[in-house]
Design a binder for these strands. Sequence first.
DNA 1: ATAGCTGCATCTGTATACAGTTTTTATACA
DNA 2: TGTATAAAAACTGTATACAGATGCAGCTAT
Lengths: 218, 218
Amino acid sequence: MKLNKNRTLRESIADALRDSIMQGQLKPGVKISEPALASQFGISRTPVREAFRQLDSEGFLQVLPRRGARVAPLSEKDVREFYEIKAELESYAARLATSRLTEKEIDRMEFLNNQMETFHREKDYKKVFNLHNEFHEVFIRAGGNEQLHHLLQMLASKFQRFRILLTIAGKSEGSIAQHREIIEAFRSKNPDKAARLVAENAIFGKEVIISEILGEMQ
Amino acid sequence: MKLNKNRTLRESIADALRDSIMQGQLKPGVKISEPALASQFGISRTPVREAFRQLDSEGFLQVLPRRGARVAPLSEKDVREFYEIKAELESYAARLATSRLTEKEIDRMEFLNNQMETFHREKDYKKVFNLHNEFHEVFIRAGGNEQLHHLLQMLASKFQRFRILLTIAGKSEGSIAQHREIIEAFRSKNPDKAARLVAENAIFGKEVIISEILGEMQ
DNA sequence: ATAGCTGCATCTGTATACAGTTTTTATACA
DNA sequence: TGTATAAAAACTGTATACAGATGCAGCTAT
């Protein structure tokens, strides 16, 4: 983890911590020691504390007054609720995007989805995950509601540690097939169909996570 | 603004600032001086800075590295986007709530709406606003998706300074009438109708704000 | 007058100090 | 062996100190 830049220490620490949590290296419920982190990075507690406040508001940490910070645990209910919200918001984005997506953008979605398939076969799941995100990003952005985009970004990163499991478990074929249908709906300028398919795609993700991933994690 | 409690100074400061911003006392774009605020409350800069970080993540402040904090400005586009997101999420909540709302809860909604009408006539707009929030809260909670509730809470408070203008401008009759229809839809257990009406209620709010309020503010 | 520079006052980011809490460890007791 | 308790250690919240960055008033030169 590199610190130096024009960026403040607080920013660097917040980013590093957020990444570790998103990547799942820091497990839910684990206590994060302020002094330990500070000395680990060779800095004082002040910027660490400020990073904590930020990550607390973002939902990555749970900071209890006078009892320190721990990685925010996410329950099965949280995951379920997240996917249902995602389904609503992304299908809304899809509806907005239908009339706005350029042919070039749709081509790009097709390209990204094909790449996903390739890397899925090669079992390069990290790449598959990133491509998956990029695919959704295209139509969310195209919808034109920037706050919606921002909100979905925020939610996605908060639940990244779960979403990435889905990819790693090699469960992406279903999504890839669904993406083809979504592309088709966008090409034929059918907002209702696009919205419905995008919602189904999210719910599909929820089902797989709940039944196949969370079950096994106990 | 009272400080003392078991609460930390940071919490108190964050709450006080957030309130001032929500209430519109602190205007968008206004710079907030860290040392001034600290001495105004008779405390050191440390808790003030931590409160800043929190409010930045929550979207109330805009903190630029080495250039201080200012109240986050909200554009007309932001307001428009907010109401559209609210329409989607609340109508989803309404759909969920339809099968779950008890008769008692629906009665309560009716009571709250009647109170709104009373206080609207008496021009006690602060009360009208709070009742309005409570009305929506009933079915959002009843939907059972706690993260959805939390998200809507967050968004509503971020845009409270605009939403409250709507009430203060005495534009609540429309909402009150729409609420009656919504109650009716809930009573007849019609989720599609409830969802549609709730979305329309949000879009109505958007229209009024945009055309009557923001126009006049220049 | 305007554009650009200079130096000062102010502010921000970070480190450090310290008191009051919380947690841990150690000890005594059942 | 387990539980209650007291003392110690570690941690949190806040204050303070200070160096470097920023912004502004006034000055110079065009």
